[in-house]
Design a protein around this nucleic acid. Structure first.
Length: 289
DNA sequence: CCACGGCCTGATTC
DNA sequence: AGAATCAGGCCGT
């Protein structure tokens, strides 16, 4: 199926900017499991081409528009967050990078796994859990699996999660799964309450602090004002905004709302991606012989 | 309120 | 090569 895309849309930077953790690139196509469906997708100039393991074209179209937030008006968002030369440069360098609308449970799980980890390891953790606890899907001879439900994680148990390489995060993920499967926590409900209230709710879970909560809110629960501050964003803020003297986490979020406005989360994603690519580039250069 | 050590383990660095 | 050190944080003291 082919779908016309908005003016600003960059598939590679959207899928490789560290917000989603189950995409694999192979021979021109990105393969991923989204909302229970194995899909492959690629971008030409003005459209994306998508194949699905189980959806008909109409459903697939709505899924893609939903997942890629094609309703976001990036032109307007850029106008709002383009406050200085640095963020402006980051926008220009990664124009078309979109925040995704991921499944809240999968998103929460991935970011629980992210604590003092690395992107490659998070990917491995997510694939291991899916392969051994999820349900299999097939498309064009490729085999992948759904990310396990909270119930499936509860059943697996903390020790199984440790076997799968989660380390100390196993306990946190297992407890979160219990809270959702048996404790009545409804992540989807957080979409309809205020940012600060939703964040407080998430932080009641053990292993979820302000940073992970912000990631879940902005990447899966429509809180585009959430402003996750990790090591990379922190470096950007030190260099370009606070002259090595950065305020507390919460004060910085309040500053971001004031400075970038209601789309601060978008600003964060461009700062993060730009800083991380820059960092990787520097590493690459330093190793060249 | 801030500071600090500990946490699993794979990848990177020296 | 083998040993530190670091990774998309958070919790307890």
């Amino acid at each position: 199926m082919k779908l016309h895309i908005p003016e600003y849309f960059d598939l590679p930077s959207t899928l490789e900017s560290g917000q989603a953790h189950r995409w694999k690139y192979e021979n021109g196509w990105y393969w991923g499991v989204v909302y229970g469906d194995l899909i492959k997708i690629r971008q030409t100039q003005s459209e994306v081409e998508i194949l699905s393991s189980l959806r008909d074209p109409d459903n697939l179209k709505s899924l893609i528009q939903w997942y890629f937030r094609m309703d976001d008006n990036l032109d307007e968002i850029y106008k709002m967050i383009r406050k200085d030369d640095y963020i402006s440069g980051a926008i220009n360098r990664h124009c078309g990078l979109r925040i995704l609308r991921q499944e809240p449970w999968e998103c929460l799980s991935a970011f629980i796994c992210s604590a003092t980890s690395s992107i490659s390891r998070i990917h491995k953790n997510m694939e291991s859990m899916s392969d051994s606890l999820g349900e299999s899907l097939v498309l064009d001879g490729h085999l992948r699996s759904t990310f396990p439900t909270p119930e499936q994680i509860v059943t697996a148990g903390e020790s199984k999660l440790r076997e799968l390489g989660l380390g100390f995060r196993a306990k946190y993920l297992h407890r979160a799964a219990i809270a959702i499967a048996e404790g009545g926590l409804d992540l989807g409900e957080l979409r309809y309450i205020d940012y600060w209230d939703a964040k407080a709710k998430l932080m009641e879970l053990s292993g979820i602090g302000p940073k992970i909560a912000d990631c879940v809110l902005v990447f899966s629960l429509d809180k585009l004002e959430a402003f996750p501050i990790d090591r990379w964003v922190s470096r950007a803020l030190e260099k370009f905004y606070f002259d090595d003297c950065i305020p507390s986490y919460q004060d910085t979020v309040v500053w971001a709302h004031d400075y970038f406005g209601c789309y601060a989360g978008y600003a964060q994603q461009y700062l993060f991606h730009d800083q991380r690519l820059g960092g990787l580039h520097v590493k690459g250069v330093s190793h060249r012989k």
